[in-house]
């Protein structure tokens, strides 16, 4: 029996879909059987971030309504044979599926996969309730901004009300230069406020935009800093204790040193 993880945030645009795509791909990369589920009915995007938009035949609603078997709706990833995507329906409303139906669906998927990763829509309405329905654990994505952290706090409360305890936090788009100047909240500031466990820190990285342009998660790019951050997150999810990427360093010498360390087998 696998484990289901919902990736949520409250606020839109903080990087939920990117996080889900990268974590899913990263887990598949180390050999786990992974199913990504896009729960954002009506506004699906996980398919384009994964570069699988041209392969969709059936979607989540088709499965729930019994128009097709789960197997025929699952799209196999281009790069990794143990990675699958269940796309959201694009032309339906969020209430076309109920939390109970989602629960059954996720339970079924957990029998086949090691990890079922659900990409939650923004907001706290029906779509959110559907996405968290079958989840064993939750990952909350935030950015170092007042609005995003506030929404993350709200999500912590709502998850608790649904008996989903101990969510883990990913702080996305940290900018080391701004943190150094005191113009961006630090990881410690945010953890201090939210009082939940930190799963990862992802630096603001232009390569994310490039990889989204291409439809290739940055976790596959060995040189990408955000990719490294997601690879670390994946290892932490698997129970390894991995130190957090230092966000202070910026100098060329330090970067070279780290690259050298990585090459010499430390990562």
């Amino acid at each position: 029996m696998g484990k289901s993880i919902v990736v949520t945030s409250g606020k839109g645009g903080v990087g939920k879909t990117t996080a889900a795509a990268n974590i899913g791909t990263g887990l598949a990369q180390i050999g786990r059987r992974v199913c990504l589920v896009d729960a954002d009915i009506g506004l699906r995007n996980l398919d384009v971030v994964m570069g699988l938009e041209n392969r969709i035949v059936y979607d989540l609603i088709d499965v729930v309504e019994g128009n097709c078997r789960i197997r025929s709706a699952l799209i196999k990833d281009k790069r990794l044979e143990n990675l699958f995507l269940l796309p959201a329906a694009q032309t339906r409303e969020k209430d076309a599926v109920s939390p109970e139906q989602m629960q059954v669906l996720i339970e079924d998927l957990k029998k086949e996969f090691d990890y079922v990763l659900v990409d939650c829509p923004a907001g706290i309405e029906q779509g959110f309730k559907n996405a968290i329905a079958g989840a064993d654990v939750a990952i909350i994505v935030t950015t170092p901004e007042v609005s995003a952290v506030r929404d993350a706090d709200r999500i912590v409360g709502l998850l608790e009300a649904s008996e989903l305890y101990d969510p883990q936090l990913i702080i996305n788009r940290i900018r080391p230069d701004m943190v150094r100047k005191g113009d961006m909240m630090t990881t410690e500031d945010i953890i201090d406020i939210l009082a939940i466990k930190l799963l990862g820190i992802v630096p603001d990285d232009e390569s994310i935009i490039v990889s989204t342009n291409r439809g290739e998660p940055s976790v596959l790019d060995k040189k990408s800093l955000s990719g490294q951050a997601f690879r670390n997150i994946v290892r932490r999810l698997e129970g390894a204790s991995v130190p957090f990427l230092p966000i202070e360093e910026r100098s060329v010498v330090k970067r070279l040193l780290r690259m050298f360390n990585n090459v010499s087998g430390r990562s």
Binding site: E145, V146, V149, R150, D153, R154, G157, V179, K181, G182, D183, M184, M185, T186, D189, D192, I193
Partner: peptide, 19 residues
């Protein structure tokens, strides 16, 4: 005062109410 301190303080206050 660094702007991140301002952010943290505002967050702390708004969360007292939200929570």
């Amino acid at each position: 005062e660094q702007s991140k301190d301002k952010a943290k303080e505002r967050l702390r206050l708004v969360l007292v109410h939200d929570r």
